[in-house]
Design a protein around this nucleic acid. Structure first.
Lengths: 246, 246
DNA sequence: CAGTGGTCTAGACCACGAC
DNA sequence: TCGTGGTCTAGACCACTGT
């Protein structure tokens, strides 16, 4: 029996499934900023034709991006690049809620914004050499009009040039996305209970040693690089950190 | 042109998509215990033939169950009912990890197991009337040989008859599943930082008032009912609560 | 009404696991 | 070698959105 050429279609070039390759291609375009947050992507048929795969394969790639909150799909309308608006932040990246009542987005008050050389621990988190310039933002966030979060944010100056001249908005992830084209895709948090340090106690109008929730968050971009390091001290007498396990 | 009968197949009886109906059917069978944890489900083709839908529709339902960790799919082998073994618990329901080193499953020491009438707050959590019988389990859990978690567990006696005569195993969710056919499918946790109460301080060999992580967990079964209420006090000087946001 | 994503089907081939 | 799930395709129809 002679072997007939079975495949004239672009079969698995590398080891990865086609839909994964399509996904990677699309993520690469998101990283490059080919489409801005809020923009519509080409339709499934257009992408399929351009990439030389079937519509079903493009669909599987887009569904996977939607599952990771990188795009939003709207029936009858199209597929859109996800935006870091307050409602998404509240849903995806802000887990502190009042014990009674609906979650609300906190207001921020800037305490300080300084530039300096990266200390050893900072260099380790960002995988850079010691001494490169970093921004250090210090701010207090309020829920229901009461200051309950004191947080310190570390950023690479090279990733956010000119940031120290900007005002510190309430929604930093929206600023990263719209002004710098840097999208926070996911984050890892480590929580501890500690006694409130003196400096944070002053900012939160509390006594040093008050039990507080320490939240240590490292945020990652679309390409997997570390975008931000954030350490927050939270008072949890009227609030709690909520999470779902499934 | 005459209108020909387009659909001879079992189209959307109700408003829900077919694959969602298939999923609900399969979840119903899991609740009834048609297949036990670890059992293989029928193949996609068999389920498709039995339910009168295509293999692709069954596949979409099974993929959705796998995404919720209710079944495990193994290429070349089959689709199996998920088990509450220690590795799954560690991955899915246990978020406390040592600051340095790999996460490990904690050991448990039973402090007490008593029966009593449900107090108002307990009745509210379980949506039952006050006074129905509940079990109250109190135990201390150790990581790396050190007691770091003191937890109180509330269960409905009607859901776990005879539990008070059983030994309290390390892995309670495995006991619920194998002995009572009750599967914990998901849980909701609320975290706070508090000063360690006197009773927990004694159990954990610490001073009262030490900052501790309070974890309040409500666990839900496959059918959405409340299975367990668990309140834990955790020392986090050498451990942390880890979670991913995405 | 045209265009989009959502659902459903049918059939092919591939990769893996058990026997 | 056979049966399983995994991938990929192709085409039909449905449901929704905007014009």
């Amino acid at each position: 029996m002679s072997d007939s050429p079975k495949s004239t279609i672009p079969t698995r070039a590398s080891g990865a499934p086609l839909y994964a390759q399509v996904r990677n291609t699309l993520v690469g375009r998101l990283v490059k900023g080919v489409w801005a947050p809020g923009d519509a992507l080409p339709s499934e048929f257009e992408l399929a034709a351009e990439l030389g795969v079937s519509q079903g394969t493009v669909r599987k790639a887009l569904d996977s991006l939607a599952a990771d909150n990188l795009v939003v799909r709207r029936q009858g309308s199209g597929t859109f690049v996800a935006e870091h608006d307050e409602s998404r932040i509240l849903f995806q990246f802000f887990r502190l809620a009042p014990d009674t009542g609906e979650p609300t987005f906190p207001e921020s008050r800037l305490v300080s914004l300084r530039t300096g050389p990266a200390q050893p621990e900072e260099a380790r988190v960002f995988s850079v050499t010691e001494g490169v310039d970093v921004f250090r933002i210090h701010r207090v966030r309020s829920l229901s009009g009461r200051g309950v979060i004191a947080e310190r944010i570390i950023l690479l100056a090279s990733m956010f040039p000119g940031l120290d001249g900007a005002k510190s908005p309430n929604n930093l992830y929206g600023l990263y996305a719209h002004r710098y084209g840097v999208t926070v895709a996911r984050a890892h948090e480590r929580l501890k209970a500690i006694g409130l340090p003196e400096e944070e106690a002053l900012l939160l109008d509390s006594d040093p040693g008050t039990p507080a929730l320490l939240i240590d968050r490292v945020a990652y971009g679309l390409d997997g690089s570390v975008v931000e390091w954030r350490v927050a001290h939270c008072l949890t007498d009227e609030f709690h950190y909520a999470t779902d396990l499934k």
